[in-house]
């Protein structure tokens, strides 16, 4: 389940603002996304859930961002920038230990 942490909503903004990021996609599990899509179709409105997924587990916080990048970019560079931005933000806001920060490039160009 997605657990909202204080930093979660700002993470969407943060990732969108990273140089080279063209698009941000919902990063929950496939099942979760299907549910969101179904709910959205039923309600005809965008989901309230944030795009960047965060999950608190025993070993710490897991964050997943799924992005699209511009064709002029390098996947590795953009990914590392996104990772580092999230990492810095989480550390700054004093969140629990970070177990994983996943950045997925799902679309290029």
């Amino acid at each position: 389940m997605t657990v909202l942490t204080p930093a979660t909503e700002q993470l969407d903004e943060l990732v969108r603002g990273v140089q080279g990021v063209d698009a941000l996609y919902p990063a929950g599990s496939i099942v979760e996304n299907a549910l969101i899509t179904a709910a959205r179709e039923m309600a005809h409105r965008p989901p309230a859930a944030s795009m960047v997924a965060t999950e608190q587990r025993a070993d710490g916080l897991r964050v997943t961002a799924k992005i699209g990048i511009g064709a002029a970019e390098s996947s590795g560079d953009v990914c590392r920038r996104v990772h580092d931005a999230i990492d810095a933000q989480l550390r700054q806001s004093g969140n629990s230990p970070i177990a994983q920060i996943a950045v997925i490039v799902a679309r290029i160009g």
């Binding site: 590795g76 990492d87 994983q100 920060i101 950045v103 290029i108 160009g109």
Partner: peptide
């Protein structure tokens, strides 16, 4: 598009907690 994301192709990062990937679907697309 989810049906066609394919495998996850890793991108390097020095941090042990980083998991950076580009999907196979994105690579086939480009």
């Amino acid at each position: 598009r989810e049906a066609h994301r394919g495998r996850e192709i890793p991108l390097a990062h020095p941090s042990p907690t980083a998991r950076l990937v580009v999907t196979e679907g994105a690579v086939r697309g480009i």
